[in-house]
Simulated assay, not measured.
Amino acid sequence: MPVTEVVNAERLRTVLSVAEVRGPAVLAYSSVELFRPVTVGAKAFERLPPEDAALGEFLSSAGEADRDESGLDEITSSAFVVRSAGAVASAAGYRVWPNRTAHVSVLTASDRRGRGLARVAASAAVEHALGQGLVPQWRARTTESRRVAAALGLRELGAQLSFRLNSQPGEGQSR
């Protein structure tokens, strides 16, 4: 398959027995030189351990689709959170992957989006990853997520399509 077809879910289904597809998504990366940290409101975040009850409550209140897409329940770093009225309104962190990659995760409460909270939380997470000598990786499917990544200086360099195959040949396919 040509590279452009690899991230085409329908084309993939003609070749493989696919049970579930996530994506396509763009992959963006940053470096110390490219990173543009948030400076306005940058002190408005706090750092929590990933098992903190406030983060758990925030993730529980998010819809299943948003929670799963964010990947915040898989971070290995601290969580960098922004609060509104005492409750976590946005959170970011990262999971360390092979080859010193920091896979960044971010989520903002649906009723708090569009206020720059994701930029503040994500800026703190990306800055921390860079300080650890890691390469921040951002996976984005939505235009809004891509805008946050671009605002922080991450450059789109690839694409990703994640899928789960059926466990038995022909399973999940109509006859």
Score class of each variant (00 low, 15 high):
P2T: 09
V3N: 09
T4P: 15
T4H: 15
T4Y: 14
T4F: 12
V7D: 09
N8G: 02
A9S: 10
R11E: 04
R11G: 01
R13M: 11
R13G: 06
V15H: 13
S17Q: 13
A19M: 07
E20H: 12
R22D: 14
P24W: 05
A25R: 02
A25H: 07
A25P: 02
V26D: 04
S30V: 00
V32C: 11
F35Y: 11
R36L: 13
P37I: 02
A42E: 04
A42M: 00
K43S: 15
F45M: 14
F45R: 11
L48N: 12
P49M: 00
E51G: 11
D52A: 05
D52P: 13
A54M: 08
G56H: 09
G56K: 08
G56M: 06
F58L: 00
L59G: 07
L59F: 01
S60T: 10
S60Y: 07
S61A: 14
A62K: 07
G63C: 06
G63P: 01
A65I: 10
D66L: 10
D66E: 10
R67E: 02
R67P: 00
D68L: 11
E69S: 07
E74S: 06
T76H: 06
S78L: 02
S78A: 09
F80N: 01
F80E: 03
V81W: 07
V82A: 05
A85Q: 10
A85W: 10
G86Y: 06
G86K: 07
A87N: 10
A87Q: 07
S90L: 07
S90N: 06
A91K: 00
A91R: 05
A92H: 06
Y94E: 02
W97M: 13
P98I: 12
P98G: 12
N99E: 14
R100W: 15
A102Q: 03
H103M: 15
V104N: 01
V104H: 00
V104L: 12
S105C: 14
A109D: 01
S110T: 15
R113A: 12
R115Q: 04
R115H: 13
R119Y: 12
A121H: 08
S123L: 10
V126F: 02
Q132M: 13
Q132N: 03
V135R: 14
Q137C: 12
R139T: 15
A140V: 08
R146D: 14
V148S: 05
A149D: 08
A150K: 11
A150M: 09
L154A: 00
L154Q: 04
R155E: 14
A159K: 08
A159I: 08
Q160H: 14
S162R: 13
S162P: 08
S162M: 11
R164H: 10
R164G: 03
L165I: 06
N166S: 15
S167L: 14
S167E: 14
Q168T: 12
G170M: 03
